[in-house]
Design a protein around this nucleic acid. Structure first.
Lengths: 232, 232
DNA sequence: GCAGTTTTCGTCAAGATGACGATTAGCGGC
DNA sequence: GCCGCTAATCGTCATCTTGACGAAAACTGC
């Protein structure tokens, strides 16, 4: 094992940043934290932080998610989104960030973390509508995350990640309606979603929490790809 | 702008690695280069190299593609694939690599680059069938790249990236057949592909290079998303 | 019991799909 | 110039899926 040779291997800092999405009060919301450090002190930003020397990227992402938000992290869907490495994206030094996309059911309000003085859920339309709100290139990263979520709803069971363990067809439909920002016919959606192999697993229970006739409760099925896909 | 503080921002090396796919002699092939340096000296690997201090990730990927292969790089589709950062993935030091997926029409044979002694096109089935052939975690990266290509054929016009500027419906079909490894009915494919809005742009020319009745030549259309998608 | 609400099942026309027959338009050889 | 070969392109038909919407079912609150 050789020595580290800075001339040959230029040093970078590597961070993870988190696009954490949830649905709260009938809106698609993203987690933002207020920065407690320079640069961008006091500005809102995505949660994130430096990857530790002996830590895998996925591990770092999950650790930051837990640390910076205090949220129960076990039930959260986490996947890598993309990496961003513009030489000027951080004024301190050369930083490459590996962005992750996290999807969660409606969670309690986050608490501030170690490097943050505040944390909250903010509707994504508000954030994306004002490009200068977020620090660094986080506006772009958020946009990419939302777009990834939108398209993955079509051909994966990702929408179930926004729902609690047991959920109704109507709750799942609400996810699609909010993420795609388009109304969906409840009857056709019901027919389609119950027809896709492996998307829903029956629990035998019912609930009336949405009012009206009792609805079947489902758990997420084993499918990882939807055949046929749900098209926008 | 602060000083670099190694305790606070642990140093990483950042590389780009390239999954370059093409279709040659009716097979889906990937570009592999023989390493001219330690570690894995003499082993086959994906093309790639260190990102320079003042260089964007996309720029580094395109530069490496040109440098390590000598291929004409203008017509090549290039997109980010994913990042890999297992602490043990490189025995020298902590390296995070940003993998890119490149798709090219049938190109001339590659030449060796600066850090490589040899370069060639190798059928992906051969590479994926023998997990220990490639250096580092490149077997996994290649697998992820091929899987990305497979699924993007469904809902984007990505298949056209494997074709020359002007191509026939049959040539496009051959791409689908080889990447998905499944036969497709020429008549139904023709009907479908000519029906998808914005996938194909007519050139008015025809060719008989495939034999038989002259085929219309098309250029790729403006669509970025296929409606409806081509389903496996 | 009744009004209100939501789930769930049905119907029907229009569009998409898969299997496959038939026609068209070049080629090469004679 | 005609014949067979090849491959592109067009058609047909039964089946499946989709979108629009009617209607019944099963709960709640009053």
């Amino acid at each position: 094992m050789r020595h580290y040779q800075p001339e040959k291997y230029p040093p970078f800092a590597v961070t993870v940043d988190l696009v954490v999405l949830t649905i709260r009060a009938d809106r698609l919301c993203a987690l933002v934290v207020r920065r407690g450090e320079r640069p961008y002190l006091g500005r809102w930003a995505l949660a994130g932080g430096f990857v530790r020397p002996d830590e895998d990227l996925d591990t770092a992402a999950r650790r930051e998610l837990a640390e910076e938000t205090g949220l129960p992290v076990g039930s959260v869907h986490l996947e890598q989104l993309a990496s961003y490495g513009d030489p000027a994206r951080d004024p301190r030094m050369r930083v490459v960030t590996v962005a992750y996309l996290a999807l969660a059911p409606d969670l309690p309000s986050p608490r501030a973390g170690t490097d943050t003085v505040d944390a909250k859920w903010e509707p994504v339309t508000d954030l994306l509508g004002k490009p200068a709100t977020l620090a660094f290139d986080h506006h772009r990263i958020l946009g990419d995350g939302v777009e990834r979520a939108r398209s993955k709803l079509e051909y994966t069971p990702l929408a179930t990640a926004f729902c609690p363990t047991e959920f109704t067809v109507a709750e799942l439909r609400r996810v699609y309606e909010l993420v795609w920002d388009t109304p969906i016919d409840p009857r056709n959606f019901h027919r389609k979603v119950t027809g896709v192999a492996g998307l829903l697993a029956s629990t035998g229970h019912t609930t009336t929490r949405d009012g009206g006739r009792p609805a079947q409760l489902y758990r997420r099925g084993e499918a990882t790809l939807l055949h046929p896909p749900m098209l926008r």
